[in-house]
Design a binder for these strands. Structure first.
Length: 851
RNA sequence: GCCGAAGUGGUGGAAUUGGUAGACACGAGGGACUCAAAAUCCCUUUUCCAUUGGAAGUGCGGGUUCGAUUCCCGCCUUCGGCACCA
């Protein structure tokens, strides 16, 4: 029978589904393994990135199943988000309709890949049964003081009437309507992730050994803990002070002016009623009008405005002019900076432009002078011009100056984070409603728990819609205050969709629990996720939020763990070269035929290898691939082509190779299928038997170890090598070897089972086995068969390979040297020379050092 | 600019702890089978010189070592992250 993936794949997918093969329950008697891949946004159809992600997770899950573990392997849908809402507006359909149809289509696609999910645990985050718990958690967090509301400056599109995330601003304009983006001060809800900054950092430092360093480093940088001081500066002729944060208190004597952020509240006070007011306000407005992206541009010119006011340097007593400066960020530190132009590059540039004083307070070995300085000196040195601190090295001066300030009540040592609290308000429809009611008398009041979930109301979507749909649904918006009973309005913003993905992995442990977000017992049994797999692009946002959420849920008493994910594998992107036609722009791969555009026959320009994306059309559709070769081939190729962490360059001919391999496996086992139903003579202990045992045990060992260390590409290579060896042995063997050969091809079936499960099931069945190979045991290897008695070792002279000798394993050293020295070619290189050192690496090589 | 990762045949990649560089696969060339094709199978395939064999070779330049793709120093390139963070 020819290998025909189309028939066998649907057959086995149905059997697995009918038998609910991958359905699991908590079972204390078994060791558990929780394998999780990042759930997808239901955008319409799956792409190669999904295939790769889920193929990796499926191999690991199936392998652990076969090793006898109780494996939880769930899948679901990150179902809230803007694309659904945009599609709804465009097509006048409800986002729920669009989302649901996408989910059912994509679910079918995933099933076609033969993935081992427990579909009974399927969840969609847009389901009120999911987001009701998110709303409950939100209220619990509020009660614990982890949530607050504040005004802040955000990207705002007037036309769409909504806040935009930074990444939704394209060259200063709204990505959807092209309107210029403004900065607007808006109310928003914040989660106090900064309260957990230290713990998040601490675990990232050394308590997450299963995470790639790369991701931990990115998170550490994102949190950005820095030690420094807060120093108070008195505004001259007033009672008010301006606080600054600095990491360089040692340079305080060199502070000659002050810069404050345009958004800083003090700005209005400073300008009020002065002759600078009009000009200053205009300056501030001109900066705030720029969108955030532009304002943070590379090499942005430094612009400042002198307010006409001064602060007093607390240690020198000198007047320091106060400038409003475009490069000072309101949301880092205190929004005000003491400027030390001699020792900070930004302040240096600013001072040169606006003619501010420079003062050197740190001298390195090679003396600085103001006349020759062309840039700020930021290195170490000895303090000068710094009163009683002169002569101390700048590092210890950091401490002593802060101590001095502390004693005088002028400042204190402090720690600052780059991490900011998480703003979760979105002026959108397709997200979880924020369960709060705004009352004129009582302020923001949580919706009583009994009234949860706050469900999204129905809205008629149409292309003429603008703004936040919820805000216009009067029946939703108008309500009464739960506290005072007076008229009140419901919060019409919805939550950031990262809120859903921050705890979905816990919901999977009891997805239908209707009394709590999840069953605590079950969650404690299944968590942590033992293996999490997903794209590197989530290194910060999703993975940091999930860690934060886990700690919060712990502190709220929902679960007893500190971190959600034990091991993390970040898979690389799937890439392909791009094709561009001078007439028709980007082309799909199939539109470029022999270097010509299939539409106009112009020469096609082959671009660089890039991440597969719809916009550049350098995509390969998993559907077409599965139709042509089957899911097993698709899975095998995507795992073989590259190690999981690295990016994968798509190659059609590589796919052919994987298909060929599967056919070779198929034929090898087919040709010998009758062995499974035959009485065979007892095996003999000859060379060929030894060889067979050797190759089989080596293959099992290598595949096992490679899966354990995520090297799925070399695991596939080991299976290929095994098959090549089996063909060679098949050609030589007699009846007395067939019993062993039968064992070997059974091992082969099991080894390929996690990778190409359909083909493995079919072969297993044809061999006459009862039950499913997916539920059979993983093959074991015997270390003694992975070693040969006769081995080849390399003979080097002065580190250069001069020969190879066959010896018995573990032969004594001196005998090996004798044999090696007798080797003809070795003699040539040692003759007439002194051998003054002989090195022997057991069973590997020897090296003669001669002169 | 800062941080991180990577750089190996024509191509994707392998070499797990410092020990025979190029496993496995793709592509290419040659051959077998076939009326022919497809499929399959076999051989060759780092470069250079050559007759057994030799020389060079893992981005570049140094170093440590009997021995370096692997460790150290300096540089180049590519990719990723962060970026006026006080």
């Amino acid at each position: 029978m020819k290998y025909n993936p189309a028939d066998i794949e649907t057959k086995w997918q149905k059997i697995w589904e009918d038998k609910k093969l991958f359905k699991v329950e908590k079972d204390e008697s078994k060791e558990k393994f929780y394998c999780l891949e990042m759930f997808p946004y239901p955008s319409g159809k799956i792409h190669m990135g999904h295939v790769r992600n889920y193929a990796i997770g499926d191999v690991i899950s199936r392998y652990k199943f076969m090793q006898g573990l109780n494996v939880l392997h769930p899948m679901g849908w990150d179902a809230f988000g803007l694309p659904a809402e945009n599609a709804a507006i465009e097509n006048s359909t409800h986002p729920a309709v669009w989302t649901k149809s996408n989910i059912s289509y994509m679910k079918e696609q995933l099933k076609q890949l033969g993935l081992s999910y427990d579909w009974d645990r399927d969840i969609a985050t847009c389901d009120p049964e999911y987001y009701r718990w998110e709303q409950l958690i939100f209220i619990k967090m509020f009660e614990k003081g982890l949530i607050y509301k504040k005004k802040s400056h955000l990207n705002w599109c007037d036309d769409c009437n909504t806040v935009l995330a930074n990444e939704q601003v394209e060259e200063g304009a709204c990505w959807r309507c092209g309107q210029d983006v403004a900065i607007k001060e808006l109310d928003g809800w914040y989660l106090k992730i900064t309260e957990y900054a230290d713990e998040l950092l601490e675990y990232a430092n050394d308590k997450l050994p299963g995470w790639p360093n790369k991701v931990l480093t990115m998170q550490k940088n994102w949190i950005g803990k820095s030690y420094g001081a807060e120093i108070n500066f008195q505004i001259k002729d007033t009672d008010e002070k301006i606080n600054v944060f600095t990491t360089r208190p040692d340079t305080l004597f060199g502070a000659t002016f002050m810069s404050v952020a345009p958004e800083h509240p003090i700005v209005k006070t400073l300008l009020a009623g002065t002759d600078k007011e009009a000009e200053g306000t205009a300056f501030v407005d001109s900066i705030l009008k720029e969108d955030k992206i532009n304002r943070m541009d590379d090499d942005k010119e430094k612009r400042g405005f002198f307010t006409g006011k001064y602060v007093t340097n607390p240690v020198t007593g000198n007047d320091m002019p106060i400038y409003i400066a475009n490069f000072v960020l309101m949301d880092y530190g205190t929004g005000a900076v003491m400027a030390v132009p001699a020792h900070d590059q930004r302040d240096f540039e600013f001072a040169k432009k606006y003619g501010c004083d420079l003062k050197i307070v740190i001298q390195p070995k090679e003396e600085l002078s103001l006349e020759t300085m062309v840039e700020a000196y930021t290195g170490a040195g000895t303090l000068v011009n710094s009163g009683q601190f002169d002569g101390t090295d700048n590092d210890s001066a950091k401490k002593s100056i802060v101590e001095f300030l502390d004693n005088e009540g002028l400042g204190k040592s402090t720690i600052n984070y780059r991490l900011r609290d998480w703003q979760i308000s979105r002026q959108r429809y397709w997200g979880s409603p924020i369960p709060f009611i705004n009352c004129d008398k009582c302020g923001s009041v949580p919706v009583p728990e009994a009234e949860l979930p706050v469900k999204l109301p129905d809205v008629d979507f149409n292309p003429d819609m603008r703004g936040n749909p919820l805000d216009k649904v009067e029946s939703f918006k108008n309500t009464t205050c739960p506290k005072c009973g007076g008229a009140a309005t419901r919060e019409t913003d919805t939550m950031d969709t990262f809120m859903e993905s921050s705890w979905y992995f816990m919901r999977y442990t009891s997805p239908h629990c209707d009394t709590a977000p999840f069953d605590k017992d079950k969650a404690n049994y299944w968590m942590n996720v033992d293996q999490y797999i997903g794209g590197i692009e989530h290194a910060i946002l999703h993975l940091l939020y999930s860690r934060f959420y886990t700690k919060v849920l712990r502190d709220l008493g929902y679960i007893d763990i500190d971190e959600p994910f034990n091991r993390l594998l970040t898979q690389g992107m799937v890439c392909k070269e791009t094709y561009k036609c001078p007439e028709h722009g980007w082309l799909y791969p199939e539109e470029s035929v022999d270097g010509k555009c299939s539409k106009c026959n112009s020469d096609v320009a082959v671009g660089r290898v890039e991440k597969m994306s719809k916009s550049k059309r350098n995509v390969v559709d998993p559907n077409k691939l599965i139709q042509k070769y089957g899911a097993d081939t698709a899975r095998l190729f995507i795992l073989f082509a590259s190690p999981p962490e690295r990016e994968l360059e798509w190659s059609d001919s590589g796919v052919e190779g994987s298909f060929r391999f599967l056919n070779r496996v198929w034929r090898l086992i087919q040709n010998n299928i009758e062995l499974f139903n035959s009485e065979l003579p007892a095996p003999v202990e000859d060379e060929l038997s030894k060889e067979l045992l050797f190759h089989t045990n080596v293959a099992v060992k290598k595949v096992t170890e490679d899966i354990d260390r995520y090297q799925l590409n070399t695991a596939v290579a080991a299976m290929m090598e095994f098959v090549n060896n089996l063909y060679a042995i098949e050609a030589k063997m007699g009846d007395e070897h067939k019993a062993l050969f039968r064992d070997s091809i059974l091992s082969l079936m099991k080894l390929i089972a996690p990778f190409t499960p359909h083909a493995a099931e079919e072969l297993f069945e044809m061999a006459g086995f009862e039950g499913l190979i997916s539920r059979s045991s993983w093959p074991e290897f015997d270390e003694k068969h992975t070693q040969k008695d006769e081995i080849t070792i390399a003979v080097q002279v002065n580190g250069k390979l001069r020969g190879q000798i066959e010896i018995a394993r573990d032969l004594d050293k001196e005998t090996i040297f004798e044999i090696a020295l007798a080797n003809e070619n070795v003699v040539k290189h040692t003759e007439g020379k002194d051998i003054f050192k002989k090195i022997y690496v057991p069973n590997k090589l020897i090296n003669f050092v001669v002169k």
